[in-house]
Design a binder for these strands. Structure first.
Lengths: 343, 343
DNA sequence: CACTCTCGTGCTAACGTTAGCACTACTTGG
DNA sequence: CCAAGTAGTGCTAACGTTAGCACGAGAGTG
């Protein structure tokens, strides 16, 4: 690798002069600058950021710690962040945890060792205390999920409101046996969504046993498939189904298609998030739209400002974006079975 | 930030001793090691990789340079790479180029400055010469697309064979007006897929004007929508459509659903790649399965071996994986219109 | 008892870059 | 013609870590 020293020796000047010329220092003559730049370009010089970091410069790497990039939820976020970061000169490090707190810790250790400038994280259910310690030593924001020990910097959607709206739509159509399929309660998002589901039932004046919650791994398509299979073959088949994650929605749609379940006549369904296939699935899936892009952009801008301006002078910052219901054809009243709006 | 020096001062030993204790050097007594580790843990010491790199240690960061992470094609790759890299102690840097060679160059400059250990890249159509220079100075592999100036390390699918099979299937069903919708010819994958399309027509004994190629941006859903709209409203409407990218497929399916085109009676369709929604779209989409996972894993393993073993002693290495056709219900013969296999 | 060995540790330099200070050769003002 | 300034450049130290060499104390050997 070419260093400033190589350039200096070739031109017969000092390393300081080379360094200053490349930094466009006003004290260096135009002629010298020109010669240095020429030589640098000729020799294929590329500055060494590791060395700069040793002299106090901060890293230009921001890490994104998420469960699984294949989930379109997260890939959208990654894209939006990457785009915003790139334009400000930051690079994005991608760490997948698979919702495993030990993997999460391993990644955070590596990220700390690499002295990343900041971390944007979708925390696991109960992060290791060392993870918390490591994060607290860095500029960090939480995304979507929110863990109290990690401070108040958080960007996410109003999960409770999202599920309240989805469920209220079904309640308004007269459903009294509604199943909710979502993530575990120990996940902050899982708890919030479940709360939204329950509160919609309560507000609709329905008894406690009108709702049934099936909780499990939120990013498992397979779990969605299996659960809907179990629900449909068991006793007390619900007339409506509300979903609490994109991956679960994908699994459920696949299984309903495979079994040929008539939607919305036999079963009404409200999905979570919006995916390319949702509009052409069966009668079109009524679903909760999520302003993921806006959220990710907000988060990126916050992190950029946090990194550009000196200390954490902008205090706690929290943004909540609500999700709007996208009406398609997958819901109807439980008796007659006329869609609320055909696709 | 805590340094080895801080630990040394606290324990009244030298930095060397601390360094060696943390590196588990056999020369250090067990008792000292214990005290050092204890203190390091107490004080929240995290080694500084930038400093290590200055002493000749190599980075543990591998970069992935792709057009767009939202494309499930690439997010699958990213996931597979991340998984494999993580288990070997590497971190993954994500750089999105949006198929723009200038963005590509910007990223490569940053990656070089950060002294990443290696680069896995889906190169743009015609990379800047500086990009080529930067890449050649690093361990690198090409993924999917292959640019001759970037050496022979490449992992990808046999694009020509994939489209040959897709097209041959339609030819065998008797179609004589087949449209191909794919990426531009200047992209290596675009050229290969187009070649596969043409060779299948030739092998089927069809005249040159039986096939019609519509080329455009491969990762634009919108372009898929518009082109299919144009094709269907223009003269000489084809009886079959072969697609040459996942994003284009998504756009086409959406538009065909929206216009209520009867598939396969009015139009036969063969997609590219397999996505969650493809199985439940209309009659089920017949499509070319792509062994993306296998390809990504192969690529990751190659890069890991390249980085672990000293020089590039393993010479040029090229893997080609064929794609198999997944038969669903979206194709039929052009006259009668009985599906080859109903969903 | 002197010699050599081994064990455990410390000192120093080096990696590439940058900031502070110092130095030289001019130029300007009195 | 000398003092003071200025433009342009060089020298040196420092960032955190590690590898090579050196050192002192104690153990083993003749």
């Amino acid at each position: 690798m070419i260093t400033t020293r190589d350039i200096a020796e070739r031109l017969g000047v000092s390393v300081s002069t080379v360094g200053r010329a490349l930094a466009d220092d006003p004290r260096i003559s135009e002629e010298t600058k020109f010669r240095v730049r020429q030589a640098a370009s000729d020799m294929g010089y590329v500055g060494n950021r590791a060395a700069r970091m040793m002299r106090g410069a901060s890293s230009n790497v921001v890490a994104l710690v998420i469960p699984d990039i294949r989930n379109s939820f997260y890939s959208t976020i990654a894209h939006e962040l990457s785009k915003n970061m790139e334009s400000e000169g930051f690079q994005l490090m991608l760490s997948e945890t698979d919702d495993d707190r030990t993997a999460e810790l391993r990644h955070l250790r590596e990220l700390s060792a690499n002295r990343v400038a900041g971390v944007i994280i979708v925390p696991s259910a109960r992060p290791h205390s060392e993870s918390v310690k490591l994060l607290r030593a860095l500029p960090h924001v939480q995304l979507l999920r929110r863990h109290p020990s990690l401070g108040s910097q958080w960007f996410g959607v109003d999960d409770q409101e999202a599920l309240r709206r989805a469920t209220a739509h079904l309640v308004a159509q007269g459903h009294t046996r509604i199943a909710y399929l979502g993530g575990p309660e120990e996940l902050p998002t899982g708890a919030e969504r479940l709360r939204g589901f329950r509160s919609a039932l309560r507000e609709g004046g329905l008894p406690d046993d009108a709702g049934r919650a099936e909780l499990g791994p939120p990013s498992s398509v397979g779990h969605g498939r299996e659960t809907v299979r179990r629900l449909l073959s068991g006793p007390d088949v619900p007339t409506a189904l509300v979903l609490g994650s994109i991956q679960l929605t994908l699994g459920v749609l696949e299984e309903l298609s495979r079994q040929g379940v008539k939607v919305p006549q036999e079963l009404s369904v409200v999905g979570f998030g919006d995916e390319p296939g949702f509009s052409w699935w069966g009668p079109g899936l009524t679903t909760v739209g999520l302003p993921i892009q806006e959220m990710a952009t907000g988060c990126a801008l916050w992190m950029i400002r946090r990194l550009k301006t000196e200390p954490g002078n902008d205090g706690p910052y929290t943004a909540v974006s609500p999700g709007a219901l996208i009406l398609r054809g997958s819901t109807a009243s439980p008796d007659g079975g006329t869609p609320s709006r055909s696709a």
